[in-house]
Amino acid sequence: MSAIIRTTGLTKTYGDQKAVDRLDLTVGQGQIYGFLGRNGAGKTTTIRMLLGLIKPTEGQIELFGENLFKHKRNLLRRIGSIVEHSGFYENLTGAENLLINARLMGVHKKTAIRDALEIVSLHQEPKKLVGQYSMGMKQRLGIARAVLHHPELLILDEPTNGLDPIGIKEIRRLIKSLAEERKMTILISSHILPEIEQLADQIGIVHQGRLLEEVSFEELRKRNRKHLEFQVSDDNKAAMLLEKELDIHDYEVRGEGKIRVYSHIGRQAALNRLFVENGIDVSRLTISEDRLEDYFIKLIGGGTIG
């Protein structure tokens, strides 16, 4: 999978304070990448650097394999974005606001604006001024603007900020459909874990400007599923016993004598007995009850995500 976004040693300092610290981010083609971190972790600064709004103090940004600052104009044509709250001219209608982008982006298709408004269900009130829009409508209009020119990459900075639960659900549905129908690569930042969990297939966790972990959600869920972990003298034999004697297939041999069993939680005594009776030494047994949220809290060193 080729990288659509790749940052190397990306750093931004303000005086003595490092807002972003040697960030190495990789977003693959077609991925929905969740950029997760607490408020003030450095997400927005990173996104602003990716869009060329802020100049990095150090480091490189490559988009579509090209240096952002050498090919900025061409690269920006391939990107749609929302940076924090969507800003609009409140004296204009939604369509008129989109017309500004269409003219400047060189979008000539006559139905482009209506199509974009239809995607976000804002086409039914063409005469309504943006000043009369609710927060949710503005965010939806922001998405319409971001996809107006059919970008290959969508960068969304906290697109559900300030929305009510219905608005959040609506935006989530939109993002999912864009990824599926238009095959866009999407980078979405948030400080809300459940929101990212429902959308992303890869996440990067940022804290105090540093990328702590970049991992697929599949791997993360596996890592954090409730499980029994045995430290045994012979993991291959233990695996064979699980399958043959107890018909357990939901397990993982993790090397160095570690074997994880994702089913039969609560029957650890029976499993232990099975190993011991078959000549396998069990030197440790742990029961993981981590939820993803606990994992993140541990990772960022306490406190809460939000």
């Binding site: 602003r48 709004l53 920006l76 940076v83 800003g87 982008n101």
Partner: peptide, 14 residues
């Protein structure tokens, strides 16, 4: 004031 500059500058316009 209207927070629109960031939109204009993420369009390929110098």
């Amino acid at each position: 004031v209207e927070d629109t500059l960031k939109n204009l500058l993420t369009i390929p316009v110098s």
